[in-house]
């Protein structure tokens, strides 16, 4: 565990908590893409099946369980509890255009053709693009509440910090994973436009 990895995980956790709190406190999920949230639930489910097969540490298991629970909790709040506030008219990104290519790509480009490995690869590919419905929604409505912006900033920072973690691990442990690195870079690049707006708006005010 290095500092970049830890900061990345904290940033990821923060993003999820910000989202849950926003929905809970305002009793509304307006401006949040349910489709992105469903994709994230698929991502965590596919990746964290290893909870059943390998134990790394308490930290590792607890974080995985928290991500899973928070993700399904968010879906429950959006699609059941505060369903009336869900802005489905603006949440129209066709997720099959993301899921199908990711399925295909994970079958073609993976480290090992085994079920768990393919699911892991699929989750990495899908995670890299899972935010697109949310970014599409923000661009469609032309604005995001500041709390939604904080959520996006924290979520985007997480993968950017993981890239620094991978650079560190490459030098410190001579270890790298091409699939994770390429997908992580794609994921971070997708946030760049948003990062730019977030920082400039943050500095220069509304």
């Amino acid at each position: 565990m290095n500092v970049f990895r830890l900061l990345g995980d904290i940033s990821h956790l923060l993003a999820i908590i910000i989202l849950l709190l926003k929905i809970w406190k305002t009793r509304s999920c307006a401006g949040i893409s349910g489709r992105s949230q469903v994709l994230f639930a698929v991502v965590y489910t596919a990746r964290y099946l290893d909870l059943f097969t390998s134990y790394i540490s308490a930290y590792n298991s607890i974080m995985k369980l928290v991500f899973l629970a928070a993700s399904y909790g968010t879906i429950y709040l959006m699609f059941i509890k505060f369903k009336a506030s869900y802005d489905h008219n603006h949440d129209t990104f066709r997720i099959e255009f993301l899921i199908l290519p990711c399925v295909l790509l994970s079958l073609l480009i993976n480290h090992e053709f085994s079920p768990l490995e393919i699911l892991w690869t699929f989750s990495i590919y899908l995670e890299s693009v899972a935010i697109l419905p949310q970014l599409f929604m923000v661009s469609k409505t032309g604005e995001a509440e500041s709390i939604t912006s904080h959520y996006l900033f924290a979520l985007g920072s997480y993968r950017a910090l993981y890239i620094l973690n991978w650079i560190y691990r490459y030098y410190a442990e001579s270890h790298y994973d091409v699939i994770a690195i390429v997908a992580g870079i794609v994921q971070t690049v997708l946030y760049c436009d948003f990062f730019y707006l977030y920082i400039t708006k943050g500095i220069y005010g509304q």
Partner: peptide, 10 residues
């Protein structure tokens, strides 16, 4: 090595 990376990172 591959194994530990897989399951360790979130």
């Amino acid at each position: 090595i591959l194994e530990s990376f897989r399951h360790d990172e979130l």
